[in-house]
Amino acid sequence: MNYLLLFLAVVAGYIVALILRKKDLKNMEVFMAFSGAFLLSITVFELLPKVFESPSKSIGVYIMLGILLQIFLEFFSKGAEHGHVHLHSENKHFPWILFISLSIHAFMEGFPISEENNLLVAIIIHKIPVAIILSFFFITAGYKQSTTLFFLFFFGVMTPLGNFISNHYEFVHQYETQITAVVIGIFLHVSTTILFESSKNHKFHPAKMAAVIVAIGMAYLL
């Protein structure tokens, strides 16, 4: 069921994108702020305490490696993980670099999902707006529908694949803490970037602030 829900989050994003207009994307900023705050809160409330059950400086090293990995991936994805997509309308070739970098990100975020945490909810909330924005820009850039669906299908299955491997391969369990720490670094970078970018020019936005507060409260109460 978890695998299906993760995939359906991308499907839902695509369906919403089909009925969106450009001006409607401005309303996504509040949803993005909510998703970023929720993902950050689950990371802080649930994942960080787990990896630091046996405190070690090496855990911090793995978290920093996760942050560096995400920075590296964003050189190629151009920030699509947090809602920024820049596609050139004159280039209709399949964006392999964007596809590979996003797939690595999506694959990694599936590893820490388990019945012991609420990360599944956080990832679904994170994926829906990203899928909406990805789909919308693919559609408006004039890419073939087959290209868009191919991209979104494999983007949609990467997180369930990561979670499947985490659940069924023993060698992953041996390095569970280290892998989770790397993913924490990825989440910290993505979620904080979403929050920083949702407050352009550092202006106070009551709706976004309310969304952030609600997200933190919900994550704490889960």
Rank of each mutant, 00 (worst) to 15 (best):
N2P: 03
L4V: 04
L4G: 01
F7H: 02
F7W: 06
L8N: 00
L8A: 01
V10E: 00
A12C: 10
G13N: 05
Y14Q: 03
I15C: 06
I15R: 05
M28I: 11
M28N: 10
M28P: 09
V30K: 04
F31G: 02
A33E: 04
L39I: 08
S41F: 09
I42Y: 05
T43R: 03
V44S: 10
F45N: 04
F45K: 02
E46G: 01
L48P: 03
V51I: 15
E53D: 12
E53N: 15
E53G: 14
K57H: 10
K57N: 12
S58W: 12
I59G: 14
G60A: 12
V61C: 07
M64G: 15
G66H: 05
L69H: 11
Q70Y: 04
Q70R: 15
Q70D: 03
I71S: 09
F72P: 01
E74H: 08
E74R: 09
K78V: 06
A80L: 12
E81H: 15
V85I: 15
E90V: 07
H93A: 10
I97F: 11
L98I: 11
S101N: 09
H105Y: 14
E109N: 05
S114I: 04
E116R: 15
N118T: 10
N118V: 03
L119K: 10
L120I: 02
I124V: 08
I125Y: 08
H126W: 05
H126T: 08
K127E: 06
I132Y: 02
I133C: 10
S135A: 10
I139M: 13
I139N: 11
T140P: 06
G142L: 08
K144E: 11
K144Y: 12
S146L: 10
T148I: 14
F150H: 12
F151D: 01
F153E: 01
F154P: 04
F155Q: 00
V157T: 02
M158L: 07
P160T: 06
L161D: 00
N163I: 00
N167S: 15
H168G: 08
F171C: 10
F171G: 08
E176W: 12
T177K: 13
T180I: 12
L188W: 03
S191K: 01
T192W: 04
L195S: 03
K200A: 08
N201D: 11
F204V: 15
F204G: 11
P206S: 10
V212H: 01
V212G: 01
I216C: 07
G217Q: 05
M218D: 04
M218Q: 07
M218W: 12
Y220C: 14
L222D: 11
L222K: 15
